[in-house]
Amino acid sequence: MSRIRKTFASLKRAGRGGFIPFITAGDPDLTTTELLLIELAAAGADVIELGVPFSDPVADGETIQRASERALRKGVTLPHALTCVARARQRIDVPIVLFSYFNPLLQFGEERLAIEARQAGIDGVLVTDLIPEEAHSWTKTLLQHELDPIFLVAPTTSDQRLAEIARQARGFIYAVSRAGVTGAQDEMPRDAEVLVKRVRAVSDLPVAVGFGVSTAEQVREVWRFADAVVVGSAIVREIERLSGNPDLIDQVGHFTRSLIAPKQICPATLR
């Protein structure tokens, strides 16, 4: 059983909603990223998404674009992200999902990436710009190396494509809360809940909701109808704000705890 499956099984047993923070590898530098992975695990992250910096992150809003730029200025690329995970993996057991655009993975080599990601202790890979119709060989490669292919679905995803995604996805399905790019929003749209219901109709996998979630209140709102919540831009914004501050790690940990606590019973996982 994959580490991601085990995590969601134990969340379900405990009747808890999962918390999935996102950070960009190399923002503001690799040592900080390694320490942040450890801190986020300690703060209660159930899965961590680690972003691979890319020059043209079309699915991302300004906050994560800037994080990508900061990392690229430091020369951080995919191999560094893998090394960073391998080092953190000696200290933490939380599942880690690599979150990337397709081109860096393609240039690295799909098979080679799967082998090295597995060796580094990565559990799943999410590719933002690879559609399921084109993903078959990629999915197969990941599965051969015991990595979970994680897919995004959006409110605009057709039923036909949703079914195709359900066939290929493992671990969990990432439901994008609204039409749009990543970035903090004031309100959670109703679209998300409708989408989660549509996913549940075609898949037994846990559903995580992300894009636009930035407050403890929104986290609890998502837990009401989904198995887990992803918070990216709000945490990355904290990292940006604390740039150069010696307390960065502690403060990001503190901020993360403030989003999670108090952990509430998640009715959706008690089905």
Binding site: F54, S55, L78, N103, P104, L105, L106, Q107, F108
Partner: peptide, 20 residues
């Protein structure tokens, strides 16, 4: 070299790591 940019697979000017 072949790459993927903006939803298309084609020839793309890029560095060895796949940054455009």
């Amino acid at each position: 070299r072949i790459g993927v940019l903006q939803g298309t697979m084609s020839y793309v000017l890029q560095d060895p790591g796949g940054q455009i």
